[in-house]
Amino acid sequence: MSDVLVRAEGLVKDYGQHRALDGLELEVSRGEIFGFLGPNGAGKSTTIRILLDQLRPTAGRAEVFGTAPREGGPRQRARIGYLPGELALSGRDTAGALLDHLARLRGGAGTTRIPELAERFNLDLDRPIRGLSKGNKQKVGVIQALMHDPELLILDEPTSGLDPLLQHEFLTMVREARDSGATVFMSSHVLSEVEEIAGRVAIVREGRIVDLDDVATLRHHAGQEVELTFAEPVPAEAFDGLPGVSDVEVDDGSVRCLLRGEPDALLKAAARYHVTRWSAQDRELEDLFLDHYRVPVSDDDGEVVADPGSSVRAGTSAGSAPDTERAR
C-alpha cells in the first residue's frame, strides 16, 4: 500500500460564486503529524470535510488511503477518527450514551476505551450533553475521534475550547497515537499549538497552500529580528538591497530589519558606522504565519509594493510554494 494516506490534487471547491478551495495540493504520509494552518475561512474545514465525504470537490481529486472519499465510503471512514471543527452536540442523553452510540455506529469499535479516555480527560460520562460546557463537549468530540484507535486522525481545530492543561493532555495523546503508528492531519489557526508536535506544516490561504515545509525549515524562513543602534544618524541607502535582509526601517540612529541566512553582508554594512548596540532575536513561527496574511494574494503589484510584507513573502515562498507568485 502507498505511504501517502491523504492526497489532494488541484482541489477546487466553489460555493456558488465563492471559491473556497483554489487548486489545493498536499500529501500526508503514513506516520507523520501534519499541521494544516490558516485563519478561519482559508479553506481548512472545506478540505477536511471533502476528505470525510461530506462535501464533493468541484474539480481536482482528493484521496484517503489511495481512494476518493466518495468511492471509499463507510469502509474508508471506519479507519478514520474525525473531530469536526464546529462540533455540535445536543440532547438530554448523557455523554456516555452518545459515545456508546457512536461506537455502535462503528460496529462497537472503541466501546471499551471510553471509560479510560473519559478519565484521562476528566469527563463525567453521566452528565447530559446539553448541560455540558463547550470545553466538555469538545472532550466528547476528542474521545469519539480517538476511541477506536484509527489509522488516520483528522482533527479540525482540535484544541479549541480546551483549557491549557487539557490541550497539553490532548497533544500528548496525539503524539502517543502517532508513536503507535497512526497518522495525524490536524488543522489550526494558531501555529504554536501544531509547532510543538507537527513534523510538517502547510499554510493555507484563500484556498491554496502558500507554504509547506517541515517545522525546522519554516523556523529558518522565519529568520531573525535584528536591531542596530549607531552613535550617529545613518543613511537609509546604506542598508538597501543587502542579501537576506528585508523590512528595513531606518530611524535616525537605529536600524531594524529582518534577517534570513548569513548576517555577513548586514554586519559589513553596519561596520562602516559606529555601532553602539546590537540585538538579534529569533522570530516566532507565528510571525511567519502572519507574514503570509499581510499581503493580499490577488494583488500582483500596486499596493503590495508599499507593503513591507511583500519581500518577506518572496523570500519565504521561494522553493516551497512558488505558485503563490503566479498571476491569477
Binding site: F65, R75, R106, P150, S180, G181, A182
Partner: peptide
C-alpha cells in the same frame, strides 16, 4: 468489534491502530 468484556487488561495506555486489517463499518 464486539464490545468485549474479556481482556482489556493490557490495553490501558496502548494506542494500537487496527492497521487496516479489520475496520468495522
Amino acid at each position: 468489534a464486539t464490545p468485549s468484556t474479556s481482556t482489556d487488561a493490557s490495553s490501558t495506555a496502548a494506542v494500537t491502530p487496527t492497521g487496516g486489517s479489520d475496520p468495522s463499518p
